[in-house]
Design a protein around this nucleic acid. Structure first.
Lengths: 336, 336
DNA sequence: ACTGGCATCGGAACCGGTTCCGGTTCCTGG
DNA sequence: CCAGGAACCGGAACCGGTTCCGATGCCAGT
């Protein structure tokens, strides 16, 4: 591997000049610059990131602590993060902590001992409260996406509004007998997880409009587990006329169960979800949209900005995004 | 930020000893080691990754060039990569090149100028052939997952076998009139993309068993776009008795269209896909499974291994994974 | 008592860039 | 014709770790 000093020697200049020429700094004549650039190209020179970082003290890297990236929400946030980081010429270092709660802790500890990143974003559920407070003492900008938290700057969907929007949509269509399907959260850092907030918003709407009160049912976040439960709930005479699901996964499981039972959607049963996963569009599911990639972009923009004024007092504010109702073919007025 | 020299000074030892104590190297008495460790803890010392890397010459980082990670396949591969990298205490640097073919190129060029990673994995479609050959000249282990390629070591599902397995399953059930739904590939580095291989395998099965020959239909990879096309195909009297889809997305779009048209699955129409996405299990879709996370793990294992013997000749071999038939409720013998 | 050897530690070089500081050269204005 | 300054460049220090090598202390063996 050719080093900078090799390039300098071949080009007949000093290391200092070579560095200036290649980095784009001024104080180098155009002729010299192009000569250096040419020989660098010729030698296949690639600057050592480690050396540059050591010399400048700027890492230009942001770390991401996340649960398994094979899930839509986390993948989408990560996509947004990568996009914005790239726009600011920052690298992104990925720490996939695996499934919720399981085994992520020792990875986290290892992460804490390394001083590689100058900004950090944690995605909901990847950590519990105690870890978050330790992160906050790291001396670098830390932000969370997916859920409000008092321990750091945070970005998330306004879950209260989302739950309300979903329920209100069915109420406005004339429904008075609704069932809420809450998605299970394996680990929840605070007592007000997204799922709980959506559930409580639903209950508030129920009370406000005097709907029939039914017990809330919690289903697993994966479709397969949810399906059997939902099917049992729908396969009875006093079933509700509409289902407000906490997530699209639950809503889709519900649509499937309805299909299998011969219950027509939306004529006999309305179904609404939250998230707007790709499958929701395909299956014509009415839902409340959030845009996780956008959250990822914003969190990185904030970190970059925080990096630019190192001596500011820590910002622990929360940004919540307004949900957006997307009406498709799974909701309609109740039968008769 | 405390440096190693600070720890050394406070602990009353030299930088050399402090380094040895913290890195776990021997040549340090137990007493000294624990003293150093204690003061490091106390000072909140975190070693500079850049300095360590510069000194050792070992980056312990593997780069990943991938299309948008918000899609199931890419997210899953990345998950496997992250998992295995972590097991070997390597970091993973993510380069999300965005949607297929669009705008990824300048990001790629920027990547090429940085010398940050000591191993690289590219995920299918993130690059075109020319870029791959440049990568191969980088002097670091490079591997591709998702498709066979002559330019580097590669790992992928055996697409020929997958296409055959899907078609043969329906043939064995007694079907003689099948339709193939190929998933569109926006960019394909070689003339034999996954989609094409699956399609050709289907055609081979058709000929071998003397099935009715129907034109292959190509549908977009996102469910929404596929749905309308599929619906039109099914809404006619001479529709096939079974559909062999190139991906689960296409298969699910097909199931949905069938439901909407009142065509019962599997009694009146059998549907089979490839991939085994989470939704497939939920919707009872018979499919041919592949395990992208496994591919991600293996590719990293190979890179780590290649790193350990730097002077070996380049390995451009291909590993293909056998597909696995997962029979669920969407396939049955043809009607009558 | 003396020597050989092992365990432990410190000094200093080094990794490969960036940047401060000072020295030339050359051009401009008085 | 000379002072002042701008443009350009080189030497050397520096970032913060790791590691080679030599020095020291201590104990066992003869």
């Amino acid at each position: 591997m050719p080093r900078l000093s090799d390039v300098a020697r071949v080009a007949g200049v000093s290391k200092a000049t070579a560095s200036r020429a290649l980095s784009g700094a001024d104080g180098v004549s155009a002729a010299t610059r192009s000569k250096v650039q040419r020989t660098a190209e010729q030698l296949g020179f690639r600057a050592s990131g480690a050396a540059r970082r050591l010399a400048t003290g700027m890492t230009r890297t942001i770390g991401v602590l996340t649960p398994s990236v094979d899930r839509w929400y986390f993948g989408s946030v990560l996509h947004g993060i990568a996009h914005m980081a790239d726009a600011h010429e920052h690298d992104v270092l990925l720490y996939d902590l695996g499934a919720f709660g399981r085994g992520g802790h020792e990875k986290f500890e290892r992460f804490m001992r390394r001083g590689e990143v100058d900004g950090l974003v944690t995605i909901t559920w990847s950590l519990v409260g105690g870890d978050l407070t330790r992160l906050a003492q790291l001396g670098i900008p830390v932000a969370t996406v997916g859920e409000p938290t008092p321990h750091s700057r945070s970005f998330s969907l306004d879950d209260d509004a989302a739950g309300e929007l979903a329920a209100e949509h069915l109420v406005r269509l004339g429904h008075t007998d609704l069932l809420h399907l809450a998605s299970e959260t394996e680990v929840q850092p605070f007592d007000s997880s997204s799922s709980d907030r959506r559930k409580r918003a639903f209950e508030a709407v129920s009370i406000r409009h005097g709907l029939r009160m039914r017990p809330v049912t919690t289903v697993p976040t994966h479709l397969e587990g949810a399906h059997g439960i939902v099917r049992a709930l729908l396969d009875r005479d006093d079933r509700p006329t509409g289902v407000v699901a906490g997530t699209d996964e639950a809503a889709l499981a519900c649509m499937l169960a309805a299909h299998q039972l011969g219950i027509r959607v939306p004529e006999e049963l309305s179904v609404i979800g939250v998230d707007d996963v790709p499958a929701a569009a395909a299956f014509g599911l009415t839902t409340v949209r959030q845009d996780p990639a956008r959250h990822g972009e914003d969190v990185v923009a904030w970190i970059i900005e925080a990096l630019s004024r190192p001596e500011a007092e820590p910002d622990r504010s929360h940004t919540s995004y307004a949900p957006e109702l997307v009406v498709r073919a799974s909701t309609a007025p109740p039968p008769r």
